[in-house]
Computed example of a mutant assay.
Amino acid sequence: MISFTLGALPVLKSLFIEGCINLKSILIAEDVSQKSLPFLRSIKVWDCNELESFPPGGLATPNLIYFAVWKCEKLHSLPEAMNSLAGLQELEIDNLPNLQSFVIDELPNNLQKLSVGSVGGVMWSNEPTWEHLTCLSMLRINGDDMHLTSLQNLEIINAPKLESLPKKGFPSSLSALSVTRCPLLEASLRKKRGKEWRKIAHIPSIVINNELITRVLFGLIHQIIVLSQGSARM
C-alpha cells in the first residue's frame, strides 16, 4: 500500500496504521475534500518509515480527539492547519528524525496533553508562546536529541490546568525557571518536596509569581565570596 485515502470508510471512528513499509502518503478522497469526516476521533500512525506527507490543507476531521505519529523517518511535517482541529485533546509525536518544524503557536487551544519525543529539524518556533493553551494539563518532553542542552532560562505562564512537569525534568544547563499563573503546579512546587520539586531542585533560581522561592544562586555567590576572601588572606 503506497497511499491511504481518508474518506474511503466514511463512518470510521478510529484509524491505526502500523508497519506499512511502502506507505508514502495519506490523502483525502476528492469527493469529500469539501466536506468533513465527523466520525473520526483517533488517528495513530506507527512505524511507517516511507511516509512523507499528510493531506494538503490539513485533516478534514473536526471531531478528532487523539493524534499520534511515531517512528516515521521520512516525515518532514505534521498536518497543516493543526489549530483548526478544535476538538483535539491529545497529541503525541516521537522518533521523527526529519521533522522540520513544530510550532507551538499553531496547536489548537483545547489541547490537554502534549507529548514530544525524539524529533529532528527545528523543534520549536523561535519564540514559542503558550498562553493560548489554557487547557493543557500534561506536558511530556522526552528524547536525547531535543537540542535543549544549552537552555538557560524557561518561563511557564498562564497554564491553570498544568499539574506536572516533564517526567525527566529539565537539562542541567537551566539556571532560571519562572512559573506564573499556574495554580496547580505552584501548589506542589511551593512545598519544596515531592516528585515535582525533585525535577527542578537543581535549578539555582526558581521564581513563582514574581517571588523567589529558592536562594541556591545566592548561596553559591556567598560561597564564592568566602573562598575569595580566604584566598586573599593567604
Rank of each mutant, 00 (worst) to 15 (best):
L78A: 07
D47T: 07
P108A: 10
I21C: 10
V119E: 02
K191D: 10
I203S: 11
F102N: 05
M123R: 09
H222P: 01
V179A: 14
C20D: 11
S188Y: 01
P56Q: 06
L133C: 01
F218R: 12
T61C: 12
N83L: 05
V103I: 14
G194W: 09
S25C: 07
S164V: 05
S231C: 11
E50F: 01
N158D: 14
L148F: 01
N110E: 06
F39R: 11
R193N: 05
F4S: 08
I200E: 08
S25F: 08
N63M: 00
K195V: 11
K71Y: 04
N49H: 03
V179D: 13
L59V: 04
S173D: 06
I26W: 14
Q112S: 10
T180V: 04
T5R: 04
L37Y: 08
R215Q: 10
S231I: 15
V119G: 01
L162F: 09
E163R: 11
L111T: 08
L51D: 01
F39Y: 15
K161H: 07
V179H: 13
L151R: 02
S33Q: 11
E106A: 13
V179F: 10
N126L: 15
L177T: 04
N22L: 13
W124S: 14
I225V: 08
S173Q: 08
N22D: 11
G19F: 06
K195S: 11
W124A: 13
I208C: 03
L15M: 13
S164T: 01
S14Y: 13
I43R: 14
S101Y: 05
L185D: 06
D47S: 13
H202T: 06
D31H: 13
N142E: 05
K44S: 07
L40C: 05
F67R: 07
S175D: 02
